[in-house]
Amino acid sequence: MSIVSGPEAHEEDEFRFHTGRQAPTGVQDAIEFVDVHKAFGRNKILRGLNMGIPEGRISMILGPSGTGKSVCIKHMVGLLYPDQGDVIVHGQSVPNMHDDELFEMRKRFGVLFQDGALFGSMNLYDNVAFPLRQHTDKGEDEIAEIVNRRLREVGLANANDKMPNELSGGMRKRAGFARALVLDPDIVLFDEPDSGLDPVRTALLCELIQEIHEENGGTYVVITHDIMSARRVAEHISVLWRGRIVESGPAEQLFESDNPFVRQFLSGDSQGPLGME
């Protein structure tokens, strides 16, 4: 019997709730993480992440703060590269792409950043028109028609001339959503769309995400730690903790999971494996 526990024993203990179970979804994965490790200095964020994001669904990556959810999004679009492992988007390895391939691949993505990431020097209209002017040969009339439609969809039809610093947090997010959609991307990523919003605005934004997904289709990936948002919109859930997947699968199965960590997190209970550490 060992008196002093070694690093393996400690690691085993740390990941004792990580079954890594991936319930089948019946569709192909649009994005795959294969044994991805990522550290910033001594801070290990992703520690052998294996995760699949199913094609054509609204997937949610849930987990406590600081577990690497935003880092996941940055790996998907090649803003960060893994120290080890691979990230595969539609069968192509992102870390092995040349710059030109990467810029081409990114055109298939729409990303809604936490605070919208609107360009401060442009008004709302120009912000939403930017990807169209940059990547298409469309004339200004056609661009105006697309931009106005997208702004109408997100409820900002009358804010064309406003500068980003004149908008509320919720409006900036909706504007960021409109910009993320103008190129009709195959994959849309949402980095904590509910952060800084009141519950009513969060619910409205979730409804908007659902409506637009129903209308346009595509693979949506939503990063959040808000369980209410997950209950509203998620079709597929991956629960991330300590840089690895605890469990993942269709939302209804995850909400019925008997894994103590998943159960605690999805019910928002203070009693369970997750403490304040």
């Binding site: 990114r106 055109k107 990303v111 605070d115 609107l118 401060g120 940059q134």
Partner: peptide, 18 residues
């Protein structure tokens, strides 16, 4: 620096702009 903090630079890259 302000653009980096507001994630504008990340947004540019994601929009395919170097």
């Amino acid at each position: 620096g302000a653009r980096k903090i507001r994630e504008e630079l990340d947004a540019l890259q994601v929009l395919g702009v170097d």
